[in-house]
Design a protein around this nucleic acid. Structure first.
Lengths: 199, 199
DNA sequence: TCATTATTAGACCGAACACTCTAATTTCGT
DNA sequence: ACGAAATTAGAGTGTTCGGTCTAATAATGA
């Protein structure tokens, strides 16, 4: 009786996912063929479809992976002392991610696909809810320590910070002069003025 | 000798463009077939391709049309007395546009396509440059009248306002709880705190 | 070793794609 | 009314798509 080796199986899936991410970032979900993913991953279609039954499940797996990554980032953030500084730190990592065109492309692609495909839309909404929840918790903590303005609604502000994050990824696509690395100062100014306790 | 009637010609093009916009918003540029556009416009492929030689030219025409629309909005805005109020008014119309899912879909689709297709990327960058230029001019005017903080760099702030605009359209895709109509107050708060003269 | 199951390759499939072609019809200056 | 140009229809083109199938090979427990 042979059994599946879960480690090898997972490694193969990751290989396919990485290949797919590279292709999708270059050409979009509907612009890349499964054959291209096969070529990038160095395997035959028979092999690829052994690990993912349809192209859609590959896309869904990528969106799901995205969620785990942001959750991971927040896990490290919650323990900070100055929670407003933690927020600014998080936004710095967002700018760093935006510096990677693959990541920006993928973020935009997912948002666009969310409007077309309800299944992806649901996944993306779940990711976003998690992000907003984490941001709101951070803001509530900061407010209770008087690190930010207590009169601002945390959930509402979290929503707009999420909008700014989305906006950063769109910038990369549409504004060739936008260099994420150079924008940290202005972003901090914006957030500080928006959130700091009003004198 | 018969000549082309430019009015009829333009009307036919607009009919096709409107049909294409409806399809693209539903299924994306690469997800809709030319046959679908034909069906939506109620014409044969022979007819459609008489007016647009390729699918790509249809997409490009739509992006170009987008530019003219934003230019038109700004034309009405420049004459205002209170330029910061004019900016807030512009952002209200953005929220209004974001309430139309067709418009939001299209905006996201264009951004995503800009990362993939260099020709669309160039067009989108031109649109964005025009938007940022108009915003920066507005901000400079407001600064010179002390309606906003004079120490903030106009071009830099314009870039981040553009990011927020992009973010609004992404919100619609990814956050089912985001109702553009209800977000005016928080957006005004954000912009006011960011830009108003610091005491 | 051997039976069994996991894994792999790649030829292959029907459907759908963007677009072309030919021919018919409409339009309008004369 | 006539003829040339503009417009239209829709069947047809070669290609590419996502995905299947068959069969060969590799790995493992007994």
């Amino acid at each position: 009786m042979r059994k599946v080796d879960p480690e090898k199986h997972a490694a193969k899936r990751r290989l396919i996912l990485d290949a797919a991410i590279a292709c999708f970032a270059r050409k979009g979900f509907h612009g890349t063929s499964t054959a291209e993913i096969c070529a990038e991953a160095g395997m035959s279609p028979g092999n690829l479809f052994h690990y993912f039954p349809t192209k859609h499940t590959i896309i869904a797996a990528i969106v799901e992976e995205e969620r785990q990554e942001t959750a991971e980032i927040f896990r490290k953030l919650g323990e900070a002392e100055d929670l407003f500084a933690a927020l600014l730190g998080f936004m710095d990592t967002v700018l760093e991610l935006a510096g990677d065109p693959t990541y920006s492309s993928l973020a935009l692609e997912i948002a666009a696909e969310a409007m077309r495909d309800e299944r992806i839309g649901t996944l993306a909404a779940a990711n976003d809810a998690e992000l907003q929840g984490a941001l709101a918790a951070l803001l509530r903590g900061a407010a209770s320590r008087n690190q930010i303005d207590r009169t601002v609604d945390a959930a509402g502000a979290a929503r707009w910070i999420a909008a700014i994050i989305d906006g950063i990824f769109s910038r990369v696509a549409v504004d060739p002069g936008f260099k994420p690395k150079d924008e940290g100062a202005m972003l901090r100014l914006l957030l500080t003025r928006f959130l700091r306790p009003q004198g």
